[in-house]
Design a protein around this nucleic acid. Structure first.
Lengths: 201, 201
DNA sequence: GTCTATAACGTGATAGAC
DNA sequence: GTCTATCACGTTATAGAC
């Protein structure tokens, strides 16, 4: 039998979370197993159960980390001080990183596997959605006031469009390469940014 | 033992496909099993294997049917004769039906579970994507020529945006109700349809 | 041609060693 | 506190009955 690993304290837990997040975004909730995580870390699958008693716990923790990461990111000075257009661009850069890593977004996973996902994970995903909607709504509204963005209707609707499009674009990118993500990005920014005046028809 | 079912010839196969498609769009590829299909149809799981030797075969057939359905739908006289705006509206109506049934789109499933999906299913999904992109590109291009749609850039980019947004919107709807789908729809149509003139900046 | 009994394997989870 | 041996179950797939 292989002797216990000599990993720094707390490092195993962190590695488990890292792998779970990666595979969740590449294969979905049912697409990876404790055994695969254990193999990659050269421990037994039951060691994973020590750090996360059930798969529910593990995936809920992964979703919670998405939220925390985004909260941290959005509060960085460089984001707060950026213009609304710049904030949106940076958000799309963030999503593009997923595409480069052949991953989709957490909300896509939650949406697709919703009916077979543990309740705790769904709750975390919903909360993450709320955070994103709120942040994007504020960003888009601010950008419209400065005249940088042009759109009709509610900023909240437009925020949901941005989230949905980014999510869907990541999935298209899996099927047909990263170019599809950038195509969606171009189209979306073109629609939002193009200087234009509305005919008051 | 329960005696063999007396189902009309070919009906079992059709029912299997129906259930598989429904659950694929509600739970994802790994979210349903042969046993569940068998239970619902009151047969043994091995009977399902007679109609579809492997799960690969079953899911590939489901994806193939999505393609065939869309091809049939898009060639109906009512679609062919409709205006571009109307065709887009009808397409979104089609997607909205998924939202009403608490389902996501096939491309969303394929994108999210891509790395854990059988190759045959991926190929069918990619072909389906190609069909959708081609049809939407033509529709959007035609609509722009008549002045009904206004957007900058390539129609192909805009087509990918529509697909991505619809896909993502269905997933958001799972998390937060059908209202999110309609919000995305409003925003998207608002951006495409609003009468406006472009400043040649 | 259609379906059933059963196998072979993979999965999440528990009890207990160190 | 951290990890391993092992279990009980669910899943896909095969061989064979009718």
């Amino acid at each position: 039998m292989v002797s216990a690993q000599r990993r720094p304290r707390g490092e195993t837990r962190r590695q488990i979370l890292r792998l779970a997040a990666r595979w969740l975004q590449q294969r979905g909730y049912h697409g990876f197993t404790f055994a695969q995580i254990a193999d990659a870390l050269e421990i037994r699958s039951s060691a994973v159960h020590y750090h996360f008693p059930s798969k529910d716990d593990l995936v809920a923790a992964v979703f919670a980390r998405y939220r925390a990461s985004f909260a941290w990111w959005s509060q960085q000075p460089v984001q707060v001080q950026a213009s609304p257009v710049n904030r949106l661009e940076r958000f799309l850069d963030l999503e593009a990183r997923h595409a480069d890593n052949e991953q989709v977004g957490p909300l896509g996973v939650a949406g697709v596997e919703y009916a077979s996902l543990p309740a705790a994970a769904c709750s975390e995903a919903e909360a993450f959605r709320d955070d994103l909607v709120a942040w994007l709504t504020l960003t888009l509204e601010a950008g419209r006031q400065t005249g940088a963005f042009r759109f009709v209707g509610e900023p909240g609707d437009q925020a949901r469009l941005v989230i949905a499009a980014a999510q869907g674009a990541l999935q298209l990118a899996r099927l047909h390469g990263v170019r599809d993500f950038h195509a969606v990005r171009r189209a979306m920014l073109g629609n939002l940014l193009t200087f234009r005046v509305c005919k008051t028809s």
